[in-house]
């Protein structure tokens, strides 16, 4: 535990008190979890008075010994990943196009693109999926992919534009002064720097995209949630509903946590380059604002600028 500027270093009494509170807190949390487990394990009494085994009973979990169940869950994971992967690639491409359009010099390109971007960013992804599904009749898979690609493309486009804008002016001037055309300057000088600078935000947005593939459940695509919970519990019986939901939840968490971890890793790796790229920003001493106030802070827990 690092010391905080907010109060003096704790003496023996204060430290003891903090340990006691910590233990009490831990006890409360553990008691809560144990209580929850007891509630789950209690036998269910259905409306007609029949008693069913509790949710932690073996008879509710035995389907997971069946390999076919795991194969079906694997299919669900693949369906989700397939949608996420295609949508991610398209989203980055669309984002790049948007950022060029948004920072174009010609007004007749810039203004309409800005309006379209604002429109896409302000609309729920789900509505966009429904729109594409009903208007273009693409089928649920492509409706999901297209909506996710457009929505996240709009957000990535904004991020890239902000990246281009935050570059020192000298970058563009230098490009122009060695005789590159404005377009070549944008492609060869400005864009690569902006892309690298915004990489953490782009990747964080791709994590959001992976999470959002589950929205396709609502328009009827057979992704992990539908294949895992609806289809399997229809097939094996309703008593497996809770266990199947729990397993699907764990799979989702594992995928998203893994991808978030990769995002943080890349953010940390590309972090130092940020500082060297834009030395123009001067910070007064102490302005970095860090853990001194909140005591514990892992360097880049928050990935800024993402919408979820």
């Amino acid at each position: 535990m690092s010391t905080s500027v907010l109060y003096d270093a704790p003496g023996p009494k204060a430290r003891r008190r903090s340990i006691i509170f910590s233990i009490i807190g831990l006890a409360v949390i553990v008691a809560g979890i144990v209580g929850l487990l007891f509630i789950l394990a209690a036998p269910r009494v259905t409306a007609n008075g029949a008693s069913q085994p509790g949710l932690l009973d073996g008879s509710r979990w035995d389907i997971f010994l069946d390999r076919a169940v795991w194969r079906t869950l694997g299919d669900g994971v693949l369906a989700t990943l397939r949608m996420a992967a295609v949508a991610a690639v398209l989203a980055v491409i669309i984002g790049i196009l948007f950022s060029f359009g948004r920072s174009a010099r010609a007004v007749w390109i810039r203004v309409p693109v800005a309006v379209i971007l604002e429109f896409f960013r302000g609309m729920p992804v789900l509505l966009m999926m429904l729109f594409i599904l009903l208007v273009f009749g693409t089928g649920t898979y492509w409706a999901g992919v297209a909506a996710l690609a457009i929505y996240n493309g709009a957000i990535i486009g904004e991020a890239l534009r902000a990246g281009i804008q935050s570059l020192p002016k000298g970058q563009r001037e230098a490009g122009l002064s060695i005789g590159l055309t404005p377009v070549a300057t944008r492609f060869l000088i400005e864009f690569p720097q902006a892309f690298r600078q915004m990489l953490p935000i782009i990747i964080a947005q791709l994590v959001v995209l992976l999470k959002d593939t589950s929205l396709a459940y609502i328009v009827g695509y057979s992704e992990l949630l539908r294949t895992g919970v609806n289809n399997l519990s229809n097939f094996f019986g309703n008593r497996y509903f809770f266990s199947l939901f729990f397993v699907v939840l764990v799979i989702y968490l594992a995928m998203n946590l893994a991808l978030s971890w990769v995002a943080r890793f890349i953010a940390r790796k590309s972090g130092p380059k940020l500082g060297t790229l834009t030395p123009g920003t001067f910070l007064p001493p102490g302005a970095e604002g860090t853990q001194a106030i909140t005591m514990v802070r892992h360097a880049d827990e928050t990935t800024p600028g993402t919408t979820h």
Binding site: K211, S214, F245, L249, Y252, L253, N256, L257
Partner: peptide
């Protein structure tokens, strides 16, 4: 909670 899709939470 941040790594659980909203659909799953509302489904729950």
């Amino acid at each position: 909670l941040r790594n659980t899709p909203l659909t799953l939470i509302l489904f729950f």
